[in-house]
């Protein structure tokens, strides 16, 4: 991290984040991660859902390889209990890794990450506490939850063929297109779900899906 960090800060829209959410501040850099912490004040609303105003003390650890790697976010005041969508290390489970990476591939800035992943999560918790329901729904535990989200990402209804789609996304395009499409259409992928699979492969890379395949299937 040298002058490169300056350009990273610009690309990540760090300054815009700090201006828009003045309770957040950069912490001195002590390792390879960049830490932003402080009070995140927000007013948020979702379609057909009540507006919520709230504030949380948070800490965002941005890895050197952001946006290819996902930042880790912690709520530091202990308002959110350990059994509410948290990972084993206590950080917030904002969504399935593939979903988060797709969002970051669309908007590779820390400002977008906060507004599209962190605030929706915190809004969801505040909403849940006030109204007893999750405004955007929630995924099942562990790998089942990841399969459900991948099914949604690939645009298929059941989770049974998710692994087949993940395997095709992990293959080179010209090989994958010759395989039969797992959706049951009896067509080869190149004549069926080609656009969706190719788009995902282009955005996240086939190695990401190879990793997912090894973990899930």
């Amino acid at each position: 991290m040298t002058e490169f960090l300056r350009r990273q800060f610009e690309h990540w829209c760090v300054e815009e984040l700090l201006c828009k959410y003045p309770g957040l501040r950069l912490r001195p850099v002590a390792a390879r991660e960049v830490i932003i912490s402080g009070t995140l004040l927000f007013r948020a609303e979702a379609p057909d859902k009540e507006r919520v105003e709230d504030e949380y003390e948070i800490e965002i650890a941005i890895p050197e390889r952001f946006p290819k790697w996902i930042p880790s976010v912690r709520e530091t005041e202990g308002r959110i209990p350990p059994d509410f969508h948290k990972l084993d290390d206590g950080s917030l489970c904002l969504g399935s890794p593939t979903r988060l990476l797709l969002l970051l591939s669309e908007s590779p800035s820390i400002l977008a990450f906060v507004e599209r992943c962190v605030i929706p999560y915190l809004y969801g918790y505040s909403f849940y506490k006030q109204y007893g329901a999750m405004p955007f729904g929630e995924l099942s535990h562990h790998q089942q939850g990841i399969r459900e989200d991948l099914a949604s990402i690939f645009g298929i209804k059941g989770v049974e063929v998710v692994c087949d789609f993940v395997r095709l996304a992990s293959m080179k395009k010209r090989h994958a297109n010759k395989q039969s499409c797992p959706c049951g259409s009896s067509l080869r992928l190149g004549k069926c779900h080609r656009l969706r699979v190719n788009d995902l492969r282009n955005r996240l890379g086939r190695y990401w899906f190879a990793t997912m395949y090894r973990k899930l299937c």
């Binding site: 828009k20 959410y21 004040l41 927000f42 007013r43 948020a44 609303e45 979702a46 379609p47 507006r51 105003e53 504030e55 059994d83 509410f84 969508h85 948290k86 990972l87 489970c93 904002l94 969504g95 399935s96 979903r99 988060l100 969002l103 507004e115 599209r116 992943c117 605030i119 929706p120 999560y121 809004y123 969801g124 999750m134 405004p135 955007f136 729904g137 929630e138 995924l139 099942s140 535990h141 562990h142 939850g145 990841i146 989200d149």
Partner: peptide, 15 residues
Amino acid sequence: APVLSIPSAPRPWGH
């Protein structure tokens, strides 16, 4: 605090 409109969001996982 700014008002943020959230049309859709990632679903939290592992509740």
